[in-house]
Design a protein around this nucleic acid. Structure first.
Length: 476
DNA sequence: ATGTGC
């Protein structure tokens, strides 16, 4: 990225002043190296986001930001309905409520070693992965609507998991305001037998070892102990969310001129929050959030069943479940004035700090866990919502390493088999139905996650708590 | 991300 237009206000924060059609400034987080390798498109895209009606404070890009559809992935923007604010399907993305949950196993790395291959085989057999993967659960129309309203609460009621899990999920497992009627028949049809499946792309289920602790008190409160294993599940709302995103992007692009909205980029299609279309999208998007929460809940159940076969005593308690592709209605205090805002986080994680009113009791004193999913074969990280005031970027942080290379570029550099063999040589088992998918997800196609985490920490977005190293990766 | 698409 050409940084000559930016003012560097700290080691990890860069500002683009409001100019032209921009309604607010744009802010990018990251060190000099991350900014240098960031695509110029990120700057162009957050500048365009800053032009949207009703945007508050600034348009933000996280340290892992890269080029996305309309909004950058790693983008955060908040809108005020009372100021003509909009909701944008592109600001949430296609994979609505994609997110990560982490299960604590209490199992030491040494205990796993003799069972590693068999555990990997069982996980791969029982947790469907890949493009178009289907599961054993088929939902009829009534069950589909109940799932879209109830999210993980519905899943627990159906026998997938425990009531205690719900306290460890954003919004206690179910987004309020979901409207199954706003979800098209086609979206529901696509989801009919996709519950409890990982999907493809960067989605995965990993068994990871806690290899480093940066903040012992927080790690202890989270139940993270060095040398023990956790399970990270990264997936979203599958075909349903994708269909909703596709349909509303089209509808918003067509409707925007009628609302008097001039789009700097057609991909930023949006509608006023206080419009029939805006409200209908929010209802459908919240239903997709519930679909993703239910999906991760069912996968949790399947994972526990596999682990129980090998480790009878392991209960696999849920640490937390966070979504990183959402638009959520939240209270914030931009400029010291308390306002209800619609915060779009696309490839960005909510990072509420200690004392935040919307945190579950378990995290009231610590702040919420923030999961930074690494690329296949590299480290992941657990951070905690930072306690600095005023909040940075509406209490948001990064979500992963972020791509350095396009999928197409990656395919020119690696073959799937070669990547699997290289990782096997380092003791990491990768199982995937797609050799091509593995090549696209090669570790070298992603940025260095350590520098992304350092930048988020230094910028005060979240604080480092623990580093995780992969042992088994079930890849979509 | 995706019943991946020229």
């Amino acid at each position: 990225m050409d940084t000559s237009l930016l003012a560097r206000v700290s080691e990890t924060e860069w500002h683009l002043a409001q100019a032209g059609d921009m309604r607010v400034p744009a802010v990018i987080f990251g060190d000099g190296e991350l900014l240098a390798e960031m695509d110029d498109k990120v700057l162009e895209q957050i500048r365009n986001v800053a032009c949207l009606p009703g945007i508050v404070e600034a348009a933000y890009a996280m340290p892992d930001a890269h080029w996305g559809y309309g909004f950058p992935i790693g983008g955060v923007a908040a809108f005020d309905a009372a100021a003509g604010g909009v909701v944008s399907a592109g600001g949430v993305g296609f994979d609505i409520s994609c997110g990560v949950r982490v299960l604590l196993t209490g199992i030491g790395r040494g205990e796993l070693e003799p069972l590693k291959l068999r555990l990997a085989d069982s996980l791969y057999r029982d947790i469907p992965a890949g493009v178009g993967s289907t599961g054993k659960i088929a939902l009829d129309a009534a069950a589909m609507d109940a799932m879209l309203r109830g999210g993980a609460r519905w899943a627990v009621g159906e026998g997938y998991g425990r009531a205690a899990d719900l306290e460890r999920i954003e919004e206690q497992g179910a987004a309020a305001g979901a409207e199954p009627d706003a979800v098209s028949a086609q979206a529901k049809t696509r989801q009919h037998d996709e519950m409890g499946t990982l999907g493809s792309g960067n989605h995965y289920l990993e068994v990871q070892e806690i290899v480093d602790i940066a903040e012992p008190a927080i790690a202890a409160a989270f139940g993270l102990r060095r040398g023990e294993l956790v399970v990270s599940i990264h997936c979203g709302s599958r075909g349903l969310g994708h269909q909703i995103g596709t349909e509303f992007l089209r509808e918003m692009a067509i409707a925007a001129p009628g609302f008097g909205i001039v789009l700097p980029d057609l991909e930023l299609a949006c509608a006023p929050i206080d419009s029939e279309l805006g409200r209908r999208y929010l209802g459908a998007m919240r239903a997709a959030i519930n679909c993703a929460l239910a999906n991760r809940q069912i996968i949790t159940h399947l994972t526990r069943r596999v682990f129980a076969h090998f480790f009878e005593a392991a209960s696999l308690d849920l640490l937390f479940d966070v979504s990183h592709n959402t638009c959520k209605e939240e209270w914030h205090e931009p400029g010291g004035k308390r306002r209800r805002l619609f915060v779009h986080r696309k490839g960005a994680t909510r990072a509420f700090a200690a004392g935040h009113a919307e945190l579950p009791p378990a995290f009231a004193a610590t702040g919420q866990p923030v999961f930074i999913g690494g690329s296949m074969g590299t480290a992941s990280a657990i951070m905690v919502g930072a306690s600095v005031r005023p909040e940075r970027a509406f209490a948001s942080a990064c979500h992963g390493a972020g791509r350095r290379m396009s999928r197409h570029q990656a395919l020119r550099h690696w073959h799937g088999r070669q990547v699997v063999d290289e990782l096997a040589g380092r003791g990491i088992i990768v199982k995937s139905p797609s050799s091509r998918g593995v090549a696209e997800e090669a570790p070298g196609a992603y940025k260095d996650i350590a520098s992304v985490v350092e930048a988020a920490h230094a910028a005060g977005l979240a604080r480092k708590v623990a580093t995780l190293a992969p042992v088994i990766c079930i890849k979509g």
